[in-house]
Each structure stands twice: as C-alpha cells, then as structure tokens.
C-alpha cells in the first residue's frame, strides 16, 4: 500500500514530529507509515484525512501485492 503522506506533509511544511504531535502518535509511527513499513489503523487514517482535508482514498492506495 502506498501513501502520499510525506507529500501532504511537505505541502504544509510539517516535520514528522509536528505531524505526529497533531495526530497524537509518535514520530516513529509517522516514519513507519511514510516508509511503507506500517499500515495505519482506520482511526489513524481518518485522522490524517481530517487533518489534510483529503479523502482517505486519496491519501492511501492499494498496490498489486495487497491483492
């Protein structure tokens, strides 16, 4: 699963630590999500969606290996 979190974060000039603080998770979690090592829970995905003002499907996309 790929995501555009780091792009959205860059658009708003946020560091990983800033974003983590706003969402209520650790910086390691944001880093793990952006590097594709961790798939966030639905709740976390919805929080990201709310913060960035974009639908979840725009932030996260399925890849072939997810099928």
């Amino acid at each position: 699963m790929k995501n555009t979190i780091h792009v959205e974060r860059a658009i708003r000039n946020l560091t990983q630590a800033d974003l983590a603080e706003r969402i209520g998770v650790s910086r390691q979690t944001i880093h793990a999500i952006e590097s594709g090592k961790y798939v966030p829970s639905t709740v976390l995905a919805l929080k990201l969606s709310r913060l960035f003002g974009k639908p979840v499907n725009e932030l996260f996309q399925l890849e072939e290996q997810d099928e």
Partner: peptide, 9 residues
C-alpha cells in the same frame, strides 16, 4: 513512554 498503535503492533 509513547504507547501508540505502532508500538502495540
């Protein structure tokens, strides 16, 4: 110190 979903995973 920070117990979030990634740590629990």
């Amino acid at each position: 110190k920070v117990e979030d979903e990634f740590v629990q995973h």
